[in-house]
Nucleic acid binder design. Structure first.
Ligand SMILES: NC(=O)c1ccc[n+]([C@@H]2O[C@H](COP(=O)([O-])OP(=O)(O)OC[C@H]3O[C@@H](n4cnc5c(N)ncnc54)[C@H](O)[C@@H]3O)[C@@H](O)[C@H]2O)c1
Ligand SMILES: NC(=O)c1ccc[n+]([C@@H]2O[C@H](COP(=O)([O-])OP(=O)(O)OC[C@H]3O[C@@H](n4cnc5c(N)ncnc54)[C@H](O)[C@@H]3O)[C@@H](O)[C@H]2O)c1
Lengths: 251, 251
DNA sequence: TCAACTTTGTGCAAGCGTTCACAAGCGGTA
DNA sequence: TACCGCTTGTGAACGCTTGCACAAAGTTGA
């Protein structure tokens, strides 16, 4: 059993494997993958605006990162830029999509059709980005059969058959925290290897399952920490003779 | 203008400041702060179960991290453990809460009361953790005055006055992406310095504003990347003489 | 009181990720 | 063709994070 985001991924590089896309894909740092997804979104917007070429500087600005970092990130997927000119937007889009595995559709199942589950099921942003919502599950019999966002809710007990039928590759957990681990176990036994978890619990999963969590309370608390730090710094500065406006009042 | 998560925070350490909590708070790495929030949640659960003492090993297991990392994280906030015994759960809870600034209430405003905004406004997990939802805003006049989760929705034009009246310290953006930057600007001019953004756009904010984003499409794409990587590895292993079950079929 | 045992707190080294800086390469121009 | 200016791609340095390993410090039991 490994916990959230398997750290010991033991990247065993086969000795004489060709230095192609496959090999390259393993080497991309997780942080870079997350940024590639952001670049992709920015680039998609560019395509719609009719932009055909973009420099690393421009794209970095739009994505809110350092241009060197952006170029390094792009270099992980290959050399598709033209020196002196920049990147062809469409070429870049297609290469990022390939690396992120977006050439294939990934069916999503949402478990727990409450407040959040409804919002997710109704959200148009998933299908439009290649993540069709293929199944919804809840334990509440009153919900079974009720269509949400165009898809009828199934009972949680049917999760195994429905998931394999509809080739679900990503499971989203939006149940109360108490039920999350059990739901997770059922998803895993149904063959789902990627899980997005909204419940505020640490899921225990086998090594081969990839879990990502969205924890709003944690996000809030990080923001709270920064508020507190800022307040403390201000207090500190005042006792050290620096006014809140940054002017040294007691030099 | 700095983009998302101000990198150049220019930590100017005042020379002879006392090595107390204030100084210590600055030194805590962001990654550790996020984990402290997780430890806090696990510990809160422990308190409810009547657990009074816990070892780093146990807590690390429950939080899904390495025990050495956990001890290092806790050491950032001070030495509150007892060697040979472990940590007093309640003591730890109160110290983490103090460091995260949770001794103070942080009022939250949600902007954009659509699918997601409704779910957030109705979510009980925020108030119960010290983040009361104090205001809701939307541009839709039909929504103005309608109570959601017990709080009447205000019109976006009243954002400045309402936010300062109710001392909002955290703004949550749940509007369509096109409106997000404008909403963000209004929150910032209303004095909100911490923003949680659900819209899939990169917000531009002044240096002193802290932005955290929750980007579900990016999370999905990271999972997609792992699916693709796994598939590629399998294909690679097969061509390299390793069957899908991990057995070397051509040694 | 003392020895055996347990668990914390942390110095240190290894590993990643980020940033800098610049050679290499390309298009445009004379 | 040769030169110039611009932008990419990347080696190398730097700094942050992680994980190991162990001394320090406490408890327990005799
Ligand atoms: N609502 C939010 O904005 C929000 C924000 C952050 C986190 N969360 C988290 O997301 C999760 C869901 O939140 P919510 O507000 O939608 O809760 P909710 O109570 O509105 O909905 C939960 C749904 O899960 C179903 N359910 C319960 N047990 C189940 C099981 N074993 N199998 C399948 N379905 C089951 C319930 O019938 C219900 O429909 C919670 O863990 C919550 O902490 C929600
Ligand atoms: N629904 C989801 O599950 C989900 C998931 C991921 C991301 N998101 C993102 O969250 C955001 C909201 O999603 P949603 O599904 O709730 O959308 P929605 O269309 O249901 O709701 C958007 C709300 O924002 C309001 N609004 C529009 N412009 C505004 C403005 N200038 N000021 C104030 N309010 C304004 C609208 O009146 C509407 O009520 C979007 O950016 C979406 O991409 C949503």
């Amino acid at each position: 059993m490994a916990a959230q985001r398997g750290e010991g991924d033991g990247v065993v590089t086969s000795p004489e494997a060709p230095a192609d896309v496959r090999e390259r894909a393993r080497a991309i740092p997780e942080a870079a993958v997350a940024r590639l997804a952001v670049y992709l979104r920015v680039l998609s917007g560019m395509v719609e605006q009719g932009v055909t070429t973009i420099s690393s500087e421009e794209l970095a600005g739009a994505a809110g990162v350092n241009s060197a970092k952006l170029r390094k990130d792009l270099s992980y997927i290959g050399s598709y830029g033209t020196r002196g000119v920049g990147y062809d937007v469409e070429v870049l889009v297609s290469h990022i999509e390939r690396i992120l595995g977006l050439t294939r559709k990934h069916s999503v199942a949402v478990v727990g059709i409450g407040n959040l589950g409804h919002a997710l099921a109704n959200y148009g942003g998933f299908p439009s980005r290649g993540f069709p919502v293929a199944a919804l599950f809840d334990i509440d019999p009153d919900l079974t059969g009720v269509p949400v966002g165009g898809i009828p809710v199934n009972h949680i007990d049917d999760i195994t058959s429905v998931c394999s039928e509809r080739e679900v590759s990503i499971g989203v957990i939006a149940t109360p925290p108490q039920a999350a681990q059990a739901v997770c176990d059922r998803l895993v036994s149904a063959g789902v290897q990627c899980i997005l978890n909204f419940a505020p619990v640490v899921l225990q999963v086998p090594d081969y399952v990839e879990v990502r969590k969205v924890d709003l309370a944690v996000e809030m608390q990080i923001l709270s920490f920064h508020v507190a730090r800022r307040a403390d710094e201000a207090a500190n500065d005042v006792v050290n003779g620096i006014g809140v406006d940054g002017v040294v009042i007691r030099p």
